[in-house]
Design a protein around this nucleic acid. Sequence first.
DNA 1: TTGTACGCGTTATCAT
DNA 2: ATGATAACGCGTACAA
Lengths: 336, 336
Amino acid sequence: MAAKQKSRPTYAEIAKLAGVSEATVSRVLNGDPKVDSDRVAAVNKAVDQLGYQKNRAAAALASGRTGLIAVVIDDDLSVFQDPFWGAITNGISKVLMENEMQTLLLVAPLDNIDSPVAQYLQRGEVDGAIFLQLHKDTLINRLAKQNLPLVVNGTPHTNNPFAYVDSDNAGGAFAAVRHLVDSGRKVIAKITGDLSNTAAEQRLEGFLAAANEFGLKTPKSLIAQGDWSREAGYNHAKKLLAKHPTLDAIFCSNDVMALGAVTAIQEAGRSVPGDVAVVGFDDSYLAQNSHPGLTSVRQDIAGLGAEAAKMILAKLRGEEVHSEILPCELVLRETA
Amino acid sequence: MAAKQKSRPTYAEIAKLAGVSEATVSRVLNGDPKVDSDRVAAVNKAVDQLGYQKNRAAAALASGRTGLIAVVIDDDLSVFQDPFWGAITNGISKVLMENEMQTLLLVAPLDNIDSPVAQYLQRGEVDGAIFLQLHKDTLINRLAKQNLPLVVNGTPHTNNPFAYVDSDNAGGAFAAVRHLVDSGRKVIAKITGDLSNTAAEQRLEGFLAAANEFGLKTPKSLIAQGDWSREAGYNHAKKLLAKHPTLDAIFCSNDVMALGAVTAIQEAGRSVPGDVAVVGFDDSYLAQNSHPGLTSVRQDIAGLGAEAAKMILAKLRGEEVHSEILPCELVLRETA
DNA sequence: TTGTACGCGTTATCAT
DNA sequence: ATGATAACGCGTACAA
């Protein structure tokens, strides 16, 4: 009963002012097409006049819909550092707001299927959920069974019927290699991300596909398994340079490793891109602000968010939803 | 009436099973201290047995409290790039969740006082709001008048009674200069951020205070007004080097400009830190992954978020709330 | 097409 | 300390 402010108008007052029933007010405000146009006008006028604004809690209670979509982020250290989450959440939020839905942020460890977040999602406090950065599919498996509409960002690990949205990681990697080949590089190494991650896997696949397509040799010794860290890029590049004197390009699965590789190359007394070209992935802040400027594969992160939001809205409307793969774009700078 | 899942238990069933009234159930579930301990136990047992979970919409309708705190981010390009927002929002979210509150994300331009977000906040759909990155104080002025509990991240522009949380920008800048002086630097230049921003202002103030304290000369020509961009850092550093042959240190108000300065110094044929030391601000991803590693002033970003959340919770409890200034820490790497 | 009447699940007031 | 019971504001069968 803690009325926050002076109490606001309700259907009763609108109905009275417009000379209709409360039911009609409800119909007009929810866009029911079969209401006489003059009554619609009357209601809208009354709404304006009174400065009416709907009480969402009451609507939620009556309808069972909350108007809220959860954005669930699997909490680990990267959340603190990686601008990816901000960008994608921003994309989601924009689309949701345009559709009068709001974004509820849930940041928590998702390893436990009975975690508070899991409970929350099963409690019907949101109309749907968008998952970012999934380590395991167990939780969404369970939620899907409970008919919670959900969309996943990133390709799921298992072959599930989840609708997901992802960047064309393989295609981006392919484009990077093509560019290297086109500019005359012959011996191209790859430093992968953590391969338990589907994106890392796909970026490697794209590399291998391109190598095959363009007739490059890809002995195992040219493919180093990294873990996204600067150190991995630095150390692997160092070893690659030592083992392969003719190496003239390194493609890394993210920008951080690529910058580590650049440092290693320079410390080895070779130039970038003169002797060795380097391409990263993500076109992050790092790529844009490094020196020399890092050539990198750009993901449409805001686009990923927007698509995810559109998909969940479609699901709420009961439409069939198909997964989406958004194209990547190679951004040329100085390193390749 | 769209029951999402099989309908969940309500007070009625708990009351029946526990042999008490619904009112008592409510009291127990809301922690009313004056309920007999055996009844409390009975209710809790029934709750467990039925797997009861509170319907927040109903609670919100009846109580006027939503359990939601809005995190409002003034939308502009930086949201896409800067990891700051993710980190602080994460800090906020954690504390709120521990207190059974949820984080509602609102990303939108706040220039218009009648924007959708402004409307939303005035609609009572959240119990309070935390503002990040404020360009103007007009909106919060209005909301404060409407008694919406709010906390601001960053020092407001005007002298208002808003509770805010901020980093000790001046103190951080002071520490940076002290370090430079301690390591023998004599001629220290400053490249500021956009001075319409209070953080930029404070970082300059700290610089000037330290210069004064340590007896440095700070002619106007040693203070360049930047705008946070890499180009600003690069161009200003270039000019500073030309004008001041004895220049042996540059303190920049963020990491991006600092990296631009490093490039300019190196291109001028001088070494970092041998000839010229460079210190940045933020200890961002950039500072950690640059080469040479950038010495920088670290803000406790997650701490800012956590404090902001604690402050808003205290406000909701009706407590007096005081603004908080969190200390910064100088992180030494290679450039200084 | 429109109105009546009730239900949604809690909270809070008022007696007791 | 506890129990009835009236709000809370909206959505929606059902009837007309």
